[in-house]
Simulated scan of single mutants.
Amino acid sequence: MAGLSIAGVIIFLGSLGVAMTLGGADVSLVNVRDIITNHIQVTEIPVRVSEDAIVWQERLPRALVAAACGAGLGLCGAILQSLLRNPLADPFILGVSSGASTGAVLVGVLGLGGTVIGLSGGAFLGALVAFGLVLLLARYSSSGTGSIVLSGVASTQLFSALTSLVIFAFADSDEARGVMFWLLGSLEGMRWDDVGLTWSVTGAGVVVTLLYLRSLDAFAFGDEVAASLGVHVTRTRAILLVLTALITATLVSVAGAIGFVGLVLPHAARIVFGQLHARVIPATATLGAIFMVWVDAGSRVAFAPTPLPVGVGTALVGVPVFVLLLVRKGRRS
């Protein structure tokens, strides 16, 4: 497993380096290396100021945020699929994405608290409100984990409708276009503050999840089996649900709605590395980071100079991959 982890890190770093060379302005891989080592004070190699700004201030922060989003959303998908025993569960099943969209629209279109919290802050608060609604609905239901899924579906539809209503009733064409672009997932204008936030949240999520690997393995066999193995079912489920909600809310507030990452990559990790979460969790996070770096790079250059929303890119890649995974799984069974 250590060898696979090292290989994953090497592939990720290689993908990151190559992605830095892609774009409207050509930057060689050697120059990318020199720029990065200069900024981390390992070397002092002369480089062009324009290339330094392109790589260090634009492409690298964007790629790192993409990697954090891929790792974090993949992690949340792996947790939810085991926790809810639902192979179609992904981070947005909790209604978090739709709530974040509504919060962003209320700030961006109606200006509610815009000068204080900003678009990302509004998205984060909206995500938390949506998750709170899911927990409230699930609490008064008696259908077990299925109540969380059904509550998430209801919350998603409610907040999607509210988002559409606000855009239709109050937004002009420019506001509607800007908001819709954000809702499709956008990594434009990412800065180092965004890198710090997304990597801190995703890293903390990975660390916490690693503490619950045996519990996640037990949940795969049902609540009764998990309880017989010493797992505090209610408390563990609550902690992991809140964790996935906070990770998803943070990532959506920064980068918008990015679909299919949390749905597809956990399945890919399980097919390649097996069912044990000691392998699935690190593999999913690593695959998510690599996947999103390449999707973002492709989205950036596909229709240059106009960037393709990264959420569109993940859907275009994610749907065929998911179909292939389903076909492969069907043949094995």
Rank of each mutant, 00 (worst) to 15 (best):
I271W: 03
P282F: 13
I239R: 08
A285L: 04
E224D: 15
R332K: 11
P309N: 02
G259S: 06
V321Y: 05
R237Y: 03
R270F: 11
A283Q: 10
A278H: 12
V312K: 05
A302N: 14
G222Y: 04
E224A: 08
V252Y: 07
A315K: 05
L276N: 15
L229M: 15
A315P: 01
G288C: 04
A302P: 10
T286R: 09
T198R: 04
E224V: 00
I290N: 03
P307S: 14
G205W: 00
V310M: 04
A315D: 02
V272E: 05
L308S: 07
L243H: 02
V323Q: 14
A297Q: 06
V261S: 02
P266H: 06
F303S: 13
H277S: 01
E224M: 04
L326P: 14
L246A: 14
A285D: 08
A297F: 06
S299E: 02
P305Y: 06
G288L: 08
L287E: 02
A218D: 02
G222N: 03
G298D: 01
A245L: 08
V327S: 11
D296V: 00
V207D: 08
L197Q: 07
S253L: 11
R300D: 02
V323L: 15
V327M: 14
V323R: 10
G222T: 00
L246C: 05
H232S: 14
R279C: 00
F260N: 08
L263A: 07
P305C: 03
V242W: 09
G203L: 00
G203Q: 06
G259H: 09
L211F: 09
A226M: 11
P305I: 04
G230M: 09
D217P: 04
I258F: 02
R300G: 01
V225R: 09
L316I: 13
L326W: 10
S200K: 03
H267V: 03
A249F: 09
A285C: 12
G203A: 01
V225I: 11
G222P: 06
V252M: 13
V207Y: 09
I247E: 00
S299A: 14
A220P: 01
R235T: 05
G256R: 07
A269K: 05
L211C: 11
A302H: 09
L251R: 05
I239L: 12
V242K: 05
G262Q: 09
R237G: 03
S228M: 10
H267G: 03
T306M: 13
V272S: 06
T248W: 02
V261Q: 09
G222E: 01
V317A: 15
F303T: 12
D217V: 08
P282N: 10
R328H: 12
V312I: 15
T202H: 08
A297L: 09
R214G: 00
D217R: 06
V272A: 12
T234D: 13
A245G: 07
V293D: 11
A226P: 13
L241K: 10
L316T: 05
P305T: 00
S215Q: 06
L265P: 10
R270L: 07
D296Q: 04
V242N: 11
G274R: 00
G222K: 01
V312D: 02
V242G: 14
L243R: 08
V208G: 01
L276V: 13
P309M: 07
V323A: 15
V231L: 01
S253W: 03
K329H: 12
V301A: 09
I281S: 01
R331A: 14
I239G: 01
A255L: 13
K329D: 14
K329V: 10
V272M: 13
P282T: 05
A285E: 03
